[in-house]
């Protein structure tokens, strides 16, 4: 099944010799290159004409471009398997690109490892397993600020202000929280670096409608604080309503790109992706 013989476990299910924790599918940029000054004028954050996939497999992204201007909200929507999450991972350096580049604030950061991108002010909230379940809420937040050497207490206080419920649960393991609370921990963890860009992969997946509205409100609040937001959202209509810029991806390529309002108004987009 897998092409890589190393990854074949020969049917081993023995948990007393191997840890059943699912393997990481990320192929992070390892080289640890330097950020170089980018030529010309480009948006605040742009994944420009990205092409690539996992391992030696087929390309998932084909010449895909996503960009967001400073302080704005950009939303990526599209059908299942369109490569939305992969595009986010590529922008964050969790995927080795075959071609294309990623630029942030006038610098080409394509060769940076994910850790270095965190240091540059990017933060990413993955769709699933986005909290450390065995760590307490407060430890989760501390881990978010792993790269910071300064006093992180004020930032923790800010996160508790944004998500008051987390303050009551700060000594509790994140794995014991409800879905919505976990999402709050996940966003809080990402905010701990005091990022310039916050990337969210389907933040409202699997939470109830009430919690979803609440989360959207919080995200808008975060954006108003001047943090640029790039977000993948299953809930296309609601997301495009708050988006400054919208991207519709199909099979790893850009299908439609416009402002959120214009995409919502586009009859073609409505018919194919928004269900009329």
């Amino acid at each position: 099944m897998t092409k890589n013989a190393w990854q074949d476990d020969r049917g081993n299910k023995d948990r007393s010799i191997t840890n059943p924790k699912p393997p990481s599918d990320a192929e992070p940029v390892r080289k640890g290159g330097k950020a170089v000054k980018a030529e010309g004028d480009s948006p605040f954050l742009i994944g420009d004409r990205m092409t690539g996939g996992y391992g030696t497999g087929a390309n998932i992204l084909n010449d895909c471009t996503v960009a967001v201007e400073k302080g704005e909200i950009a939303v990526i929507v599209g059908p299942n398997g369109a490569g939305k999450s992969t595009a986010m991972k590529a922008v964050f350096g969790m995927l080795n690109l075959k071609s294309g580049s990623v630029r942030l604030d006038g610098e080409d950061i394509t060769a940076l490892t994910p850790q270095d991108r965190v240091a540059k002010g990017m933060a990413f909230v993955p769709q699933t397993s986005n909290v450390f379940v065995s760590l307490t809420v407060e430890e989760n937040l501390e881990m978010g600020a792993f790269l910071r050497k300064d006093d992180i207490r004020p930032t923790i206080a800010q996160v508790y202000e944004l998500f008051p419920i987390l303050k009551d649960k700060r000594r509790q393991a994140a794995g014991e929280l409800s879905g919505g609370q976990r999402q709050q921990v996940a966003v809080g963890r990402a905010l701990m670096t005091q990022p310039k860009v916050l990337m969210l992969d389907e933040p409202t997946a699997g939470v109830s409608p009430i919690v979803m509205d609440e989360l959207f409100d919080r995200i808008i609040e975060v954006a108003r604080a001047g943090i640029t937001i790039l977000m993948v959202e299953q809930n296309a209509r609601q997301a495009l309503e708050i988006a400054d810029k919208g991207y519709v991806l199909v099979q790893g390529a850009n299908a439609y790109t416009d402002t959120g309002k214009a995409l919502l108004a586009d009859p073609e987009v409505r018919r194919t992706f928004l269900g009329g």
Binding site: Q115, V118, A119, P126, S129, E139, F146
Partner: peptide, 20 residues
């Protein structure tokens, strides 16, 4: 030590938090 526990808990997320 906490970063080691975090890594053991969730490798991908540790990477995203800047843990090497």
């Amino acid at each position: 030590g906490k970063s080691m526990r975090a890594f053991s808990d969730n490798e991908d997320l540790a990477l995203l938090s800047g843990i090497n």
